[in-house]
Structure formats: structure tokens, C-alpha cells
Simulated scan of single mutants.
Amino acid sequence: MIDTDDVLPDTTGRTGVEHVVNVQLSTEFGVFLAAGYLDHDRGEEQIALVYGDIEGDDVLTRLHSECLTGDAFRSRHCECGEQLSAALRTIVSEGRGVLVYLLGHEGRGIGLLAKLRAMRLQAEGLDTVEANLALGFPDDARDYRAAAGILHDLGVRSVRLLSNNPRKREALQRHGVTVGAQVPLLIPPREENLFYQLTKRERLGHHLPHLGFEPARTADPS
């Protein structure tokens, strides 16, 4: 049973995140402890969903970037919503783990409206990297310092990172979280997001071996 009255270690001064509240959250995947945080450096509110006893080493961990279109509206332009569901199911199946849901990461950190503009450029033929760059943004503007701070505060010493993205692993290690292993989170591609997934593999270095050796571009990138 998750105890919503647990007071987790307070390392606000070291990490820049303040642990504000715990509450039990019942979901279709299981019952989690929702730990709410305030990132004082960026002014963002953040949430971590904790399942089981996560203090210690090799905790299965997902850093999930906010994606309104995929997570809430189930857009098929990306696989984010399916990754979110798969990650929560995997954590519950494991018996313990944490999912840090990172607000402020919309569109790999460029914001919702800019992401929609980038999606329009992709419909016109650019890939996701080219679209971000055409709008004057980096290919990936996300910052994982708050995520590392949350994990430190939760007492997680090392993680098995549920991700295909090597940049997440590098970022956590740079911020003092040991990554013992990277666990793939592979979602079968749809016609609408195959080009997007291929671009992530070929231009952003994501480990997506299940895509095979399809050509990088398709006639309709939307």
C-alpha cells in the first residue's frame, strides 16, 4: 500500500526542486504515489509517479516528456502516448519504478505552439529536426536537471532507464544519477509516424532497431 503521508528526503537546496505534495493516484495501470514538485530554476510544476519501494539501486525509470497531442489527444503523428502507456504498464509489471512526467518539454522543449508550427512544416516535407531548425530552435531544447533533482529527492541512487534516447542517459549521468542500463521502449510504427521514428533514429541517435532498414524519407512525411 502506498502511504501518501510519507515525507520524502528534502534536497531542495542541492537540486533546485521543491517537493510540495504527495497524493495517492489510482489509474487504469495501477495505484501510484503522485509526488508533486516545483522547479524553482525554471518555474515549472513537475510530477513523478512512484510505484512500490523505489529507494536504492537499479530502479526502472522513465523520463517522459510532455506531449499534449500524443498523450492526451492520442495523435498518431508520434508514438508518445503509446510510450507513456507502455512505460506505466512496464513499471507496474516490474513491481517498482518511477515515471517522471516532464512539463515544459513539449516539442522537445520548444513549446506547444512552436511544435504545431513544426508539425505543419513536416507536413510540407521537412523532417522533425529540419522543422525545429527552420523555426530557429535547436533540434532538442530539453533540460533534464529537474528530473535528476527529483530522482535524488526520491532516494533513487541508480536507474535502469526506460528509453531509446542516448541523450537522456547522458543528461542524467551529467547531473549525478547513475544509469546502470538503458531498457528499450519500442513501439511498432504506424504509417503516420514511421518517417518521424526513422528521423529520430538516423538524426537524433535513438536506438530503434525494430524499424529495420527502411529509407529515411517517404513520399508523405505527415
Results as ranks from 00 to 15, higher is better:
I187H: 02
I187Q: 05
I187P: 01
I187D: 01
P188W: 08
P188I: 06
P188C: 05
P188F: 05
P188A: 15
P188M: 06
P189Q: 05
P189S: 10
R190L: 15
R190K: 14
R190F: 04
R190Q: 14
E191G: 03
E191C: 00
E191L: 14
E191Q: 14
E192P: 00
E192V: 02
E192S: 12
N193E: 12
N193A: 10
N193S: 12
N193T: 06
N193I: 11
N193G: 11
L194V: 13
L194S: 11
L194E: 15
Y196I: 06
Y196F: 14
Y196D: 09
Q197E: 08
Q197A: 10
L198D: 02
L198I: 15
L198Y: 02
L198V: 15
L198W: 01
K200N: 08
K200E: 09
K200D: 06
K200P: 05
K200H: 09
K200V: 07
R201S: 04
R201A: 13
R201V: 02
E202M: 06
E202S: 13
R203F: 03
R203Q: 07
R203H: 12
R203T: 00
R203K: 15
R203I: 00
R203C: 04
L204H: 04
L204P: 04
L204Y: 00
G205V: 07
G205S: 07
G205N: 10
G205T: 04
G205A: 11
G205E: 09
H206E: 09
H206V: 08
H206I: 06
H206Q: 09
H206A: 07
H207K: 02
H207V: 09
H207S: 06
H207E: 04
L208F: 06
L208D: 03
L208W: 04
P209T: 06
P209S: 10
P209Y: 10
P209K: 11
P209H: 08
H210Q: 11
H210D: 03
H210N: 05
H210K: 00
H210E: 07
H210R: 01
L211A: 09
L211C: 04
L211Q: 07
G212T: 01
G212V: 03
G212Y: 02
G212D: 03
G212N: 01
F213P: 01
F213N: 14
F213G: 02
F213K: 12
F213S: 15
E214D: 12
E214K: 15
E214F: 10
P215F: 10
A216R: 15
A216I: 05
A216P: 02
A216C: 10
A216M: 10
A216D: 07
R217N: 05
R217A: 13
R217Q: 12
T218S: 07
T218G: 15
T218C: 02
T218Y: 00
T218Q: 10
A219C: 00
A219L: 14
A219S: 12
A219Y: 04
A219D: 12
A219I: 09
A219R: 14
D220A: 04
D220T: 12
D220K: 04
P221N: 12
P221K: 12
P221A: 10
P221G: 08
P221I: 11
